[in-house]
Simulated assay, not measured.
Amino acid sequence: MVREDGKRNFVLREENGKESSVFSGSMPRQAALKAARRLDPAGSEDEAKSSPTEIRLREKGTDKVHIFNAWAWTSNAPGDKPDWMEGEITKGNVSKQGIEHLDE
């Protein structure tokens, strides 16, 4: 369901069907990128991309489950970072694999 600000809510689904975290975004990929940053990061993007993790996001109010391959890695923070930011940051990327519809 679309909120007034145009964003939709997506729930992270585990393999057993349990739903945990909620991520919002105007598109499923935007929510998936937020979820990918919570994965255990690899040392580099190449390492991370070689072993992606499947994440499933169910769009709230629908039976659609968006399936992504996701990976995360650590990177040095930019030189113009604010004082409160740490020296390393976690970046993530995703690749959409498809959509399933729940039978529940």
Rank of each mutant, 00 (worst) to 15 (best):
D5V: 14
G6F: 09
K7E: 12
K7S: 12
R8I: 00
R8C: 08
N9C: 06
F10G: 03
L12G: 00
L12E: 06
L12H: 00
G17P: 15
E19Q: 09
V22A: 04
V22H: 05
S24K: 08
S24F: 04
S26R: 13
S26F: 14
M27C: 11
P28S: 07
A31F: 03
A31H: 02
K34C: 08
K34D: 14
A36P: 11
A36W: 11
L39V: 06
P41W: 01
P41K: 00
A42N: 10
A42P: 13
A42K: 15
A48Q: 02
A48G: 10
K49Q: 04
S50I: 06
S51L: 09
E54G: 09
K60N: 00
G61C: 00
D63G: 01
V65F: 00
N69D: 15
A70H: 02
W73P: 05
T74M: 13
N76Q: 12
A77F: 08
P78N: 03
D80W: 03
E86N: 09
G87A: 03
G87L: 04
E88G: 06
I89C: 15
I89L: 09
I89R: 13
I89K: 01
G92P: 10
V94G: 12
K96C: 12
Q97T: 01
G98C: 06
G98F: 03
G98R: 01
H101S: 14
D103I: 07
E104I: 04
